[in-house]
Computed example of a mutant assay.
Amino acid sequence: MSLLNSLKPKEGSRKSRKVVGRGIGSGKGKTAGRGGKGQTARAGGSISPLFEGGQTPLYRRLPKRGFNNFTRKKFDVLSLSTVEKLVLNGVLSTELSIDLLIKAGELRKSAKSLKLIGSSDKLSGLSRVMLSAISSGARECLEKSGCVVEII
């Protein structure tokens, strides 16, 4: 009968770790397999993959172009013609909102803001639209068809 405290791994299944830095005879003495001196021989010392040995790195040699407007509002865009198709196919009933479009599978789940664009003559069936933004042409078309537009 074997007890849990007397269990041992099978002979040869576990290899002991090589002890480094313990003299010439150990095979990993003096520099302990780290090479010569310098930054990489020290504990925690590593060089960035962008480092080019003191030469001006590529990311600093190349010209910088453009402008990143980090305050710009980013919208997913939906056209009125797409909304017409969704209403005709029965995907949307009388309301249009981001949540309804996500549930219908027309928008990805991470969508936060949506802008409705475009214009249409034959839009009908919608009574209420709740979106983040809307173009002036789309607003005009919706209001002509008797739809209430809410910006959320």
Rank of each mutant, 00 (worst) to 15 (best):
L131W: 04
P49R: 10
D99R: 13
L96T: 05
G25N: 12
R42C: 01
K8I: 07
D99P: 12
S110N: 14
Y59P: 02
L123Y: 01
L100R: 12
G38R: 07
G12D: 13
K74T: 15
R139D: 11
S110E: 15
G105E: 07
G29P: 09
K115R: 15
K85I: 06
K28Q: 10
K28S: 12
N68M: 11
L100D: 06
A133E: 13
T56M: 10
I152Q: 13
K30Q: 10
K115G: 01
R17D: 12
P57L: 02
K109Q: 13
P63W: 04
L123Q: 04
K112T: 15
K122T: 08
G54A: 04
Y59L: 12
G105S: 06
R72A: 15
E11T: 07
A104W: 01
I24R: 09
R108L: 09
G44R: 08
S79A: 13
L4Y: 12
G53E: 08
G137H: 03
F75H: 14
N68F: 14
I98N: 07
S124K: 14
N5C: 04
N68D: 11
R139C: 02
K10F: 05
A41N: 05
S6V: 08
K112Y: 03
T82C: 01
N5V: 08
A104L: 01
S124C: 06
V77N: 09
V91T: 14
G53S: 08
V87I: 15
D99N: 14
V129A: 00
G12C: 04
S97N: 15
G44P: 06
L86H: 08
L80N: 03
R139V: 00
K15F: 03
K30D: 14
S113M: 09
C147P: 05
G45W: 09
S16L: 11
G12N: 14
F75T: 10
I24N: 04
L107S: 00
R61A: 06
P63V: 04
S46P: 02
L86P: 09
R42H: 06
